[in-house]
Design a protein around this nucleic acid. Structure first.
Lengths: 339, 339
DNA sequence: TTTATTTACGAAACCGGTTTCGTAACAACT
DNA sequence: AGTTGTTACGAAACCGGTTTCGTAAATAAA
């Protein structure tokens, strides 16, 4: 791919390869005069250092793996921006790996990342992840891992999360205060930290209003939108039809809206809806969607910062093992009025 | 990061390093018996080949650079999925580089990619890209480039695009047929292929209805949403207020909706809106948004296929230098009724 | 002036695979 | 028996930087 190597520069300047290398790395061993000659020639010939050679010798790739379920999700898109901005400033590159919510993909990816391609990993687990063995295996190869948003509790890694339980509690209470009596919860697998915590917040809010959470109103969704659509419709057609819905992940809001449309249920008159979502367009939906908006960019940024500390083998600061950044409830029309 | 090398396997089996390497690569020089011993040990010890060592020696990275403006855009998210699926099947990895619609970022990224980090590049230029020098420079380093969606015409690379002019023509005609007389066009920089082509389609449609395109109705937007908001509001407050809008990129639809809301203009009664967009939620907006939906996944897939052919130095098939995949107009409520 | 130290550079090992080339052992063919 | 060919493997060069170590020359300290 590339022609001009250090050797070429050396030949041109009648210097040794090691001198060139040191000059380029601004070593104190090289005189200012020589340095400037080298730098000038390098610039003129557009010399680029071969990353594979450096990585091989230095045992450092300056790459960071970002392992996430998908990219077509506002939360992850924003988090990527936060990560990217942070690590780029330190000269790192990001390698984005998509699991597509599939556990075996995730396992395969982490196994591959044991080969040294990345110096560290930022990760949000898939909804089907049932164990943390693959993550432990990676960490045992001395690849530091920071989990963000979707974490596993039995992994000894740093974690950056939002206050899932409290947010969910607030969202549910918001519905209760607006008169909802039968509130449903739509989550993903309960293996998933965010799903479990949000469920707990929901349940606590109900109990706070002397309502016993009913299994009939708790839905565990799949990665398949069609199946979810069927589940949601079924939920909305049962005798004890919900008059409020807390949806724990962004993907579910459109389905709820569509299901309600097809069943001629009006939002918010018949059903009030609140969803965990970072969708910019939430305010433009029909009706505008009340959301729990997560600090996606900040979470990505913070996770990256913690990882960079680990890579510099700096000591973690107090509280870095578990960082919690608050979400906020944005009230819009989908929860408007009293029932 | 990683401990078990080929050398370790060699020691364990009393074989030479070269024999191990050949066995792992299934060379015919190695006996079946030896191969299976090697493979078994490698599996047992969870041996992973060091990608930097292979890349250094082999002068191939098996990485593909994806250079795009941003990831928080349905078109690019979907395109990434198409690309990822295609190249993963061939053992390639993707390195996603975000330009954030900034030309100097884009230049810096392409310059960096000259270092051999990637074997080829898939790219959609930023809205501020004014020249193709940086792309040419990369290609001159023998890094094949395939442009998709946002292409430059003066670059001798393969291109995968959609039928921008025809789609825009159709979208505009759809508005005309529904009675719009003063149709505005919202594009990005006219340097941008898609913007220019879509503008041309719009203008042709107007002329087909004996309407002379007016500069007052043609808006060139920026990467800054706030500025765009101001521009759009100004557009909608002029004497010759538009009664129809063709928005050339996904990002603009929310702004148009908000601007109309703030100015108390009703969609579609006062203004009809159609937007180039792959947003899944288009159907759920208030009102649901008529879109020109691009074949994002397919475009990504096709672009990747063409690039893979180039990397295999297979001859391109007829028409691969410029692949055109049609978009389709999805009519929804934002263009409903006659004016 | 002699010795110690600093400065500025080069030779060579090294990172971990890959590939070329050489060769011992054995089979096959005159 | 002598020649040719094949099989299965090892030694070593190689990719392109980085780093250690050695050293001649210049400078400082004794």
């Amino acid at each position: 791919m590339q022609q001009i190597t250090i050797k070429a520069l050396a030949r041109e300047l009648n210097l040794s390869v090691s001198t060139i290398s040191k000059a380029l790395r601004d070593s104190h061993e090289i005189s200012p005069a020589t340095k400037s000659r080298v730098l000038q020639l390098a610039a003129r010939l557009n010399y680029q250092t071969n990353p594979y050679a450096s990585s091989l010798r230095g045992k450092k790739s300056r790459n960071i793996g970002i392992v996430i379920p998908e990219v077509a999700d506002s939360f992850f898109s924003l988090a990527i921006n936060g990560i990217d901005a942070t690590i780029k400033a330190k000269g790192y590159h990001s390698i984005i790996c998509l699991t597509h919510e599939d556990f075996s993909n995730e396992q395969a990816i982490l196994k591959e990342l044991q080969n040294g391609r990345v110096d560290g990993v930022l990760m949000s687990v898939s909804s089907e992840t049932t164990s943390g063995k693959h993550i432990r295996a990676l960490m045992e190869q001395h690849v530091p891992v920071v989990l963000f948003d979707r974490v596993l509790t039995d992994i000894p890694s740093a974690q950056v999360i939002t206050d899932d339980m409290a947010s969910s509690y607030n969202a549910t209470q918001h519905l209760l205060r607006n008169g909802c009596k039968r509130i449903a919860f739509l989550g993903l697998s309960q293996q998933l930290s965010i799903s479990a915590d949000r469920l707990r917040g929901y349940e606590n809010a109900l109990r706070g209003h002397n309502i016993t959470p009913s299994p009939k109103h708790i839905l565990t969704c799949t990665p398949d939108p069609k199946k979810n659509m069927a589940l949601i419709k079924k939920l909305l057609q049962q005798k004890e039809r919900p008059d409020g819905i807390v949806a724990a992940v962004e993907k579910l809001a459109p389905l709820v809206y569509q299901a309600c449309g097809q069943l001629s249920l009006r939002i918010p008159q018949d059903v009030k809806v609140v969803c965990f979502s970072n969708l910019e367009l939430a305010g433009l939906l029909q009706p505008s969607l009340t959301t729990v908006t997560q600090p996606a960019f900040e979470m990505g940024k913070k996770a990256a910062e913690v990882l960079l500390r680990l890579l510099d083998s700096k000591p973690l600061q107090k509280g870095d093992m578990q960082v919690v950044i608050a979400s906020r409830l944005v009230e819009r029309n989908s929860t408007n009025g009293k029932i």
